[in-house]
Write a protein that binds this DNA or RNA. Structure first.
Lengths: 160, 160
DNA sequence: CTACGTGCTGTTACAACGTAACAAGTTCGC
DNA sequence: GCGAACTTGTTACGTTGTAACAGCACGTAG
């Protein structure tokens, strides 16, 4: 694992850029970027950490009461359109930070200390994952992988 | 990825063997293998698929009413002792099928069709995962990875 | 034997997460 | 206008997970 690698973790995009990209992606896919969907996406884009569905209910509800079901419906649409991801180990959601290689695996590095999630892609990992799955005769669907641990900032801040 | 591989998916152990191993592991760790804990583990060991906490509540409750909290407490202990795993994407639990290399990653191949979960280890994958995490300055904790897809049986049964 | 600590389970009530069913408003094309 | 497709609102409910406290079993010190 020495030498140059294609691994890279994203440089976090500013919320405005993310929102513009989301709007554009919706137009390209023929998906409506309604006010409610925009508001949900904005909250996720502006949050440092992933948010739970009820976090969104609360934040949107400060302007006008929104039912949980409405938030869940919006989240489903945004996931379907590839604009956000769901972190299953945390029941939280975060905006997608880069166009994904459809043939690559996505890894979410979830920091158990500060809660921040880094979204990375790796050809090495994709190979390892595909090889492992193939050896078991398994055909992976979306290969979204979540790994919990301690992020770089937290490691240096609180050495263990 | 051609040629011999160390990848292997487990040959499912009979429930009795699993239970004996669990009992032994408890003794070795100084953890009590109480009747309730045994019953929970037995249900998991005898099930073809992972079970949810409330599945266990129902199954154990056929003999005598058991509260959800009791089941959750037992599950926590068994997880802590390394005897079972939790599948976060499904909110279900399954017995651990092999002693884990503490330096290796574990992958759960979750079949979206039949629900069966295969637990595999792979040096290739471990390398890919460690490389990816290292590139981001991330120190992985338990590297449990869940991948959804279609298992070998379901692929041949219902070709897509 | 009593008294106390520790660990496991029971009981009750509740919090958090997620969804079903149906009504109503909007947009678009005919 | 009229209907079709889509979006959101409203109400109620189902599922998953936890808090707080009581009781019981067991060992051990006095």
């Amino acid at each position: 694992m020495a030498g140059p690698s294609h691994d890279h973790h994203h440089h976090p995009s500013p919320p405005e850029a993310l929102i513009r990209q989301a709007e554009e992606a919706c137009r390209a896919q023929g998906v409506q970027f309604t006010p409610l969907r925009r508001r949900v996406f904005e909250e996720l884009a502006r949050s440092r950490e992933p948010l739970g569905a009820y976090d969104l209910v609360e934040r949107l509800g400060r302007e006008r009461r929104i039912a949980p079901i409405s938030v869940y419906r919006v989240l489903d649409v945004l996931i379907e359109a590839g604009l956000i991801h769901r972190i299953a180990t945390r029941n939280t959601y975060l905006p997608c930070h880069h166009a994904h290689d459809p043939h690559g695996a996505t890894v979410f590095l979830v920091c158990t200390s500060c809660g921040v999630v880094d979204e990375v892609c790796s050809p090495d990992l994709t190979r390892g994952l595909d090889g492992t799955a193939a050896a078991a005769g398994f055909r992976p669907g979306g290969r979204a992988v979540e790994v919990e641990g301690e992020c770089a900032s937290c490691r240096t801040a609180a050495p263990g």
